[in-house]
């Protein structure tokens, strides 16, 4: 792409930025591609399924809810991807979170808050175990967390059956706990608010804190990070825990919202969350990704998920759509990243 070379005598450059410059900067942001995809898809489904209810408040709340669930899992998993590690155990942690709530609240009658705390402790333990095994053995996290996924699925089902005789329990909730984890505000479920809240928090962490700087450095060039004194193991361990916590939170939210704890829940998230991350511009090889991108990636996924349903077509097609989308996204991301890197070159 032809670009005007930066003027060699920079002091002669006017301070005012031409509007063309600003447009170019916006286009060069890697989120631009995914935003474009989200808008195009929304317009597409509005045109095809608008008359069949896609534009109603319920449908909007529907795709936002779907986006939020995938989005929360994707936020945690993406931070870890940025740091250069995979977490395949996220899907099973959604189920484990739900199982803890089912067993604790549904069977033993514990308070929701206590069970949320137990689920969080479990998530921290699993995250730390993933980190410990990956960092100590030097095995790829892909394999370590694959094993963890299988183990957690087995343990969730087994414990449920052992303690309660079933893997699916009714989880009653009321009061503040119900509002916080399973409430709805108008048509919007509390999950959507959790998603935005977490998104803001993680965006702040990645962009504004020193820990965020380290996260990008660890995934971008681990040798450079190590030689500059970044505590690589601590950064990765914290992010394994974050990934696990986010997935478990979705399990908790779903359980309270649907009043049912089910250990088999969430297996799909391992695909959908990673797909949302990739659509959102996160580099699978690490070192790159933004919260804005990840959140729009989640939105895109939600729009397609619910959009196909409203068209009246068989939802079998959803997956085909998403597959094509992931592929396009990867190609587009690659292209935009190259543009961004070329922008400063002479």
């Amino acid at each position: 792409m032809e670009r005007p070379a930066a003027s060699p005598s920079s002091d002669e450059r006017p301070r005012r930025r031409a509007s063309g410059d600003r447009v170019r900067t916006a286009v060069l942001r890697p989120e631009f591609g995914v935003l474009l995809a989200a808008v195009v898809l929304y317009v597409f489904f509005a045109a095809v399924a608008g008359g069949k209810g896609f534009l109603t408040q319920d449908a909007t709340a529907g795709w936002l809810g779907s986006a939020a669930e995938i989005g929360i899992v994707a936020l945690g998993a993406s931070c870890l991807l940025i740091a250069g590690e995979f977490d395949l155990s996220i899907g099973s942690m959604v189920g484990a979170g739900s199982a803890v709530m089912g067993i604790g609240v549904g069977h033993y009658g514990l308070s929701i808050w206590v069970c949320v705390a137990i689920a969080a402790l479990l998530a921290i333990a699993v995250g730390l175990t993933n980190a410990f095994l990956t960092l100590r053995t030097g095995l790829p996290s892909f394999i370590v967390t694959l094993a963890m996924m299988l183990a957690v699925v087995g343990a969730s089902l087994g414990m449920g059956r052992l303690l309660t005789g079933t893997t699916n329990l009714t989880v009653p909730s009321d009061g503040v706990a119900h509002v916080v984890f399973g409430g709805s505000f108008g048509a919007l479920s509390s999950t959507v608010f959790w998603w935005f809240g977490l998104g803001a928090l993680i965006a702040w962490m990645l962009r504004r804190t020193v820990f965020g700087n380290w996260t990008y450095a660890v995934g971008g060039d681990i040798d450079a990070a190590t030689t500059n004194g970044v505590p690589v193991a601590r950064v990765k361990a914290s992010l394994f825990v974050l990934s696990s916590l986010c997935a478990t939170l979705v399990g908790v939210l779903q359980t309270v919202q649907f009043s049912s704890g089910d250990a088999t829940r969430g297996a799909d998230f391992v695909f959908s969350a990673v797909a949302a991350a990739v659509i959102g511009g996160v580099l699978l090889s690490g070192g790159y990704g933004t919260v804005t991108g990840i959140m729009i990636g989640g939105l895109t996924y939600g729009i397609v998920n619910i959009g196909v349903f409203y068209t009246g077509w068989s939802t079998d097609w959803t997956s085909l759509f998403l597959g094509a989308l992931v592929l396009l996204a990867v190609l587009a991301n690659d292209y935009f990243r190259k543009l961004a890197l070329a922008a400063g070159k002479k």
Binding site: N213, Y216, G220, D223, N228, L341
Partner: peptide
């Protein structure tokens, strides 16, 4: 040799 920098930062 390669300066130890992270390209995407």
């Amino acid at each position: 040799q390669y300066g130890g920098t992270v390209p995407l930062m």
